[in-house]
């Protein structure tokens, strides 16, 4: 992940800013600029998600690529936000704690960094609620 690419998505990464189609009342996170139901008839507006939801499925990563290898083992999950959409995120908890259906809420954490002299990537993770 390079700097301009990360910066572009900061609103979504820091604050769970996604979108909502006002035409069909569907929420999107990650944000979509084209509604998958209404397509060009859709009316897309920015929407900030509350940041609470539940774990739909999960894993604990023991073997990770370079950027994440110092953090292993870490819990990864698909979280269904209360507004509907699902996203992939880390859950900050002991691997034995995470369960399907567990309620979670968003927190602000470091996602990674570009080595000791590069930028630090911050973003959203979840903790048991």
């Amino acid at each position: 992940m390079n700097v301009p690419r990360f910066c572009r998505e900061i609103p979504s990464r820091y604050n769970l800013i996604g979108t909502k189609c006002e035409n069909c009342d569907t929420y999107y996170f990650p944000p979509r600029r084209v509604c998958i139901t209404c397509r060009r008839k859709g009316v897309i507006r920015e929407y900030q998600f509350e940041g609470s939801g539940k774990v739909v499925t999960h894993t604990t990563i023991y073997s990770a690529p370079e950027n994440f290898s110092k953090m292993t083992p870490y819990v990864l999950a698909i979280v269904e936000l209360d507004e509907g959409p699902k996203l992939t995120a880390q859950i900050v908890c002991d691997p034995s704690e995470v369960k399907i259906g567990m309620r979670v809420k968003s927190v602000f954490r470091k996602l990674g960094e570009e080595g000791p002299d590069g930028v630090i990537y911050y973003g959203t993770k979840f903790i048991p609620a």
């Binding site: 110092k70 953090m71 900050v92 927190v107 602000f108 954490r109 470091k110 630090i120 911050y122 993770k125």
Partner: peptide, 13 residues
């Protein structure tokens, strides 16, 4: 701090 916490994450929280 947790491994993914620093002054910035603490300040934000």
């Amino acid at each position: 701090p947790d491994r993914d916490e620093d002054t910035a994450t603490i300040a934000v929280e």
